[in-house]
Nucleic acid binder design. Structure first.
Length: 855
RNA sequence: GGGCGGUUAGCUCAGUUGGCUAGAGCGCUUCCUUGACAUGGAAGAGGUCACAGGUUCAAGUCCUGUACCGCCCACCA
């Protein structure tokens, strides 16, 4: 195609979908377990099946795609295994809310379990594919032939098998415990699903008896009080221990008990004890054998036990009613403002209720081994500091409440014999089995009923690295290599996967874990739907291109730091892609020219090697932003600003193509679409080898320095032009007075003319301007602009330059005058200072000589 | 209460194992639509590297402390 036919601006729309379809059709992402190549594998953190792509997903999956694509180029057999999570509570909540909005139901009970689940599956079929399509738009090179869902038949079996196995091993047990209860979701939650939030509340001081005043943040719970506790050594109350007092509002006799859990220094030293609605009180009640009176129901509504004045009130309404009643009775001593931490449900955002109920719990397997593996670096965390967080959690690990009072999820594989006349004692044992029992194995009754609860979503997610793979795949690709995820799910997911991995595969599930930052908006707020501050990534893709979005994001994604996202970042990415596009246009416009290597060719080849080294090292260490930055600087600065410009004198097309080919390969993991589009090598760029440095005779650091000095001289010439307000298009005459190597500058006369837009450039070691000429002194030469001059302005600029130089000179002289420095510093550092001193002295003298002539 | 981050230009951030004049993008100023690119080019202004000590020939970088911001963990009602 002729160059003129290539559009001036890069349009991702014409490129991206075309290539993605091509890659899919050719099966480039499909991992082959029979391959002889070394394996590289990542499993995707499965997004919620009904979710839509967020900026967090974009970040996370771009990183994974970069890793996967680079490994393909490095000759690995790559498996990036994708899929989605059923996300029990999140999905159920969304579907239920939607049905309610549509007026179909008021509560899921209106439909019943089966009908409701049908609706959820319908929803899943309809919306389940969206996020997958979005990942494809981003360019993610997942092996879609292996896409999994946590409620796929095979996967579900693995989940149930795990449950049964852990039950048989004694890790899973059922018990009546105090759990975190979400009254809106009407389900138990794990500790990790509770978010502690500092909340402005009150401390109500209530007179329970003449000598007893208690303080509480939750007056409504007093309706369920069964005691007042004091510290055993507290002499103020010792005489009351064992006595009974009357619980206000309930007219109930409750004892005064002594318990060491009471802090005598807090408040009055008296604590009300509500066994059924407070964790600490629950423990105390067990010790003192107090009854558990439930006054708040599972829906957050007060029960009949709360008394007829309060029954059927919402817990928060009841709080006001109790305070009112106490005030009327004159028992409210005082009210203080009080800031304390309140647990909120992560999902429904309502205050958690400690609630006594029958639940299933898991005592974690493989805890010591899983702790050590991260401590010892067998599994590596990036950034390393997350190790501490992980270890701390593992060392204080507590049993996991795994049952949820939901419908959407893996139903617990446990049946109970409801029994009939033939029932025996053994029938009270739950029947735990992966097979649905038709009769009770003990009494033969057909009246068996399955546990109503489902398992916590994470109880399926923790099997993800291996339960997603068939035997052949597992053999080749497990344990996986890298995991990329957010630190917010280090306990929910990462820690649990490690434990499950050891328990069920006897191997670590992954070798490295890269923790991303959290994406925030420009003001530093977490992105959320309710704030409306989360941009739609697909909208960004359509406006900036997937490559632009990806690259812009990578530039600002430092390891383990939160990311303040601003749409401007995408512009940077898009502009960069456009720059690349136009570099390609320039190259295609060139006719074959020189075949020798001039200084500019050697310089760019030297910088290219440097870029290959730096980008490779950065990616090896998961320093994605540094790799992106290096590429940006190399392409825009070294290649476009200098090398392409220099090529305008006389191009070496082979070098242009060579360097550009390397650029495309280095850039491909970041920007898969445009690099494929511009690729002129064999086949797809996806399997083109990752660039390695190669020695080019003459492409040395010394040569690079020499060319840098040339560029410095050019910048000085441009500065003169700018300072004197001479338009860029007006040709000028310059004179150059080199301090040393005249030959080099002589060989660069053509490029100097081109870069400076000079009609003529004179080169003379003994140059003396005829009249006055504006000049600047650089390391390798002094440059004069022949033509108009303003004596006063020239005096000022030279004086300023001299002051700068002399300042540095003074610092350098002082350093070298310091005997300690000369003796103790590294010889190379001293040498550097001596060189610098010589250069600065020469520059200083040159400027002084020029100033003398101005007078 | 414990732990972990952060504090560098107007804004957002880079800055390897201490070592040349502390960098980038955006924003700002001046000039420029010259055949790769105005999603661009050239030049420029702008910083006591939060503060106080310490180690060192040398500190943005290492150590100690302080202040402020943010996050995580923790059953004082």
């Amino acid at each position: 195609m002729a160059a003129s036919e290539i559009p001036k601006a890069y349009d991702p729309k014409l490129v991206e979908d075309k290539w993605y379809a091509d890659w899919l059709a050719k099966g480039h992402f499909t991992a082959n377990p029979q391959s002889s190549k070394p394996p590289y594998s990542i499993v995707i953190p499965p997004p919620n099946v009904t979710g839509v792509l967020t900026m967090g997903h974009v970040l996370n999956n771009t990183l994974q795609d970069i890793l996967a694509r680079r490994k393909r180029m490095q000759g690995y057999e790559v498996l990036w295994l994708p899929g989605t999570d059923h996300a029990g509570i999140a999905t159920q909540t969304v579907v239920e809310k939607t049905l309610r909005k549509q007026g179909v139901i008021k509560h899921r009970d209106d439909l019943g379990r089966e009908k409701f689940l049908e609706k959820v599956w319908e929803w899943k079929e309809k919306h389940g594919g969206i996020i997958i399509q979005q990942l494809k738009k981003l360019g993610c090179s997942c092996d879609w032939t292996r896409e999994r869902f946590t409620m796929d038949a095979g996967y579900s079996e693995a989940v149930l098998r795990t449950f049964v196995d852990l039950y048989m091993k004694g890790y899973i047990y059922r018990g009546k415990r105090m759990v975190n209860w979400d009254p809106t979701g009407r389900t138990a939650l794990s500790d990790e699903e509770v978010i502690m939030t500092e909340t402005q509340g009150h401390l109500w001081h209530i007179r329970y008896a003449d000598e007893i005043i208690v303080a509480t943040t939750r007056p409504e719970t007093m309706l369920g009080d069964e005691a007042v506790a004091v510290h055993p050594d507290d002499t103020r109350y010792r005489h009351l221990v064992g006595k009974k007092i009357t619980l206000p509002l309930r007219n109930k006799q409750i004892p005064v008990i002594a318990d060491a859990a009471v802090d005598p220094k807090f408040g009055t030293g008296c604590v009300k004890v509500t066994p059924a609605h407070d964790v600490a009180d629950y423990e105390m009640a067990l010790r003192h054998k107090l009854p558990f009176t439930v006054v708040i129901g599972p829906d957050g509504i007060m029960t009949a036990e709360a008394g007829e004045d309060f029954e059927d009130l919402d817990r928060l309404e009841c709080r006001e009613a109790v305070v009112e009643a106490l005030t009327q009775a004159g028992l409210l001593v005082k009210v203080e403002d009080y800031t304390h931490n309140v647990g909120y449900s992560e999902r429904t955002n309502v205050p958690i209720e400690p609630y006594l109920s029958e639940q299933w719990f898991l005592r974690y397997p493989q805890v010591p081994r899983s702790t050590d593996t991260v401590d010892s670096g067998e599994i590596k965390f990036y950034p390393e500091r997350w190790q501490k967080t992980y270890t701390h959690w593992m060392k204080n690990i507590r049993d996991w409440c795994i049952s949820r009072q939901l419908w959407w999820g893996h139903r617990i594989p446990v049946w109970y014999c409801i029994g009939d006349d033939a029932c025996r004692l053994e029938c009270k044992q739950p029947i735990v089995s992966t097979e649905t029992p038709t009769v009770c194995p003990h009494c033969g009754s057909k009246n068996v009923r399955q546990d109503e609860d489902v398992l916590d979503t994470w109880f399926s997610s923790w099997l993800w690295p291996f339960a997603t793979m068939d035997d052949a795949t597992r053999k080749k690709f497990y344990p996986t290599t890298d995991l990329v995820t957010g630190p917010d799910i280090i306990f929910f997911w990462v820690a649990r996967m490690i434990m499950a991995g050891y328990e069920y595969t006897n191997e670590k599930p992954f070798a490295n874990v890269y923790f991303t930052g959290i994406i925030r908006d420009a003001q530093g707020r977490k992105m959320s739907k309710s704030l409306g501050n989360s941009p739609d990534p697909l909208d960004l893709v359509s406006r900036y291109g997937a490559d632009g979005l990806r690259f812009g994001l990578m530039l600002i994604a430092p390891q383990g730091q939160d990311i303040l996202f601003d749409e401007k970042r995408c512009e940077v990415g898009r502009n960069f892609m456009n720059k690349l596009w136009n570099a390609a246009r320039f190259i295609q416009m060139q006719k074959p020219g020189r075949t020798d290597y001039n200084a500019h060719d050697l310089k760019i080849l030297f910088e290219m090697n440097d870029a290959i080294t730096k980008v490779s090292a950065a990616l090896h260490d998961y320093r994605f932003n540094e790799a992106a930055k290096e590429l940006y600087d190399f392409v825009w600065g070294d290649f476009c600003d200098w090398y392409i410009e220099a090529s305008k004198v006389a191009p070496n097309v082979a070098v242009l193509n060579d360097v550009f080919n390397v650029i495309l390969r280095l850039l491909h993991p970041f920007a898969p679409f445009i690099t494929e589009e511009l690729w002129r090598g064999d086949g797809t760029i996806q399997f083109a080898p990752w660039p390695v440095t190669r020695e080019v005779p003459g492409a040395t650091a010394a040569l690079a320095t020499q060319v840098d000095e040339l560029y410095e001289l050019i910048s000085a010439g441009r500065q003169l032009r700018n300072d004197y307000g001479i338009e860029p298009k007006q040709p000028l005459t310059f004179a150059i007075k080199p301090t040393a190597d005249e030959d080099f500058f002589r060989s660069e006369l053509a490029s100097l003319k081109m870069f400076l837009n000079a009609a003529d450039v004179a080169l003379d070691r003994n140059y003396q301007p005829a009249g006055l000429a504006p000049s600047l002194v650089t390391k390798a030469a002094t440059i004069f602009m022949v033509g108009a001059v303003d004596v006063e302005q020239e005096r000022q600029r030279l004086t300023k330059q001299l002051a700068d130089i002399n300042k540095q000179l003074a610092v350098t002289e002082a350093k070298l005058a310091n005997a300690n420095f000369v003796q103790r510093a590294a010889p190379i550092a001293v040498e550097r200072e001596r060189d610098k001193l010589a250069t600065l002295r020469e520059q200083s003298e040159n400027i002084q000589a020029l100033l003398v002539k101005l007078v």
